[in-house]
Design a protein around this nucleic acid. Structure first.
Lengths: 143, 143
DNA sequence: ATTTACGCTACTAATGTAGTAGGAATTATA
DNA sequence: TATAATTCCTACTACATTAGTAGCGTAAAT
């Protein structure tokens, strides 16, 4: 049930951008430094967020990345799904035809409930919520 | 966020044993057949369940496996943790010292909530609940 | 023109996953 | 006591995924 570093790093980058919202583009170099991530690796993750419409970029000198929407308009599920795809504890939850017993499989019912619980949390939290939670005292260094 | 086949197969085996509760030992060969899993692979998974106290075994001819407790005494979280370890979306949720910013990390707060939601589901469901849910019409063939 | 920064693609090392394989130990039963 | 059935234990292997490196191209500010 681990979350990939890809997704963790990507979410941390999104949080950084949310904190910098309305303050012009933020460079990957800065984010990478603050979050202790390789710039080159971060580039790849942020590219995914860009093509997913979560962030947008400005090229050239003084360029960088910006959040594409206001932090209160970005649900964590948006970011998560963009980086990791659907939560998909098992394939059959999303694709009932994956197994011909799906319809009355009790194990599948369990995984469906688990997935629902995860999605509920991710759907109910926005980047703004995370910033509010942070308050004044902290930065968002983390895993 | 995938669940390993190890855990999925193990839970399916536990469900089979729950269905067979109070009917004597059930052989892996039978479970493997019904669930379309390699016996040899299943052996390894069930060994973990055994050392975790979820099932017990009888060796020799006419031996097999039995659920160690009544199905309503076995929470899915017990089975899950035995096979997969803690849910651990990220290491820092369980081990705050994994990262020195853990205490005020907003990303960590998110993962903690996600994990909590998953654990709540798994804690609240027993094998008996799954059997009841199944009713008469279905077997538990599945992913 | 130069510098800064994103954009794209390919490659690689390490790790984890999902098995396969063989045989030893134990027990029921004929 | 011999045989068959079944769990128990350990090692090995092929494949996929993950995490990260590397290099060069493209765009824009100054």
């Amino acid at each position: 049930m681990k979350v990939s570093t890809r997704t963790r790093y990507g979410i941390r980058a999104a949080i950084e951008l949310a904190q910098h919202h309305k303050q012009g583009p933020l460079q990957l170099r800065i984010i990478a430094e603050r979050q202790a991530i390789s710039v080159k690796y971060l580039e790849q993750l942020v590219a995914v967020l860009r093509s997913g419409g979560i962030v947008r970029s400005l090229r050239g000198a003084r360029g960088g990345y910006l959040l594409a929407k206001a932090p209160n308009q970005v649900r964590l599920s948006d970011v998560f799904h963009c980086l990791e795809g659907p939560v998909a504890t098992t394939e059959c939850v999303e694709d009932p035809e994956f197994c011909d017993r799906s319809l009355d499989c009790v194990a599948r019912k369990l995984w469906t409930r688990v997935e629902g619980a995860v999605n509920d949390v991710l759907d109910s939290v926005t980047l703004q919520d995370l910033l509010d939670q942070a308050g004044k005292q902290s930065q968002n260094y983390s895993i």
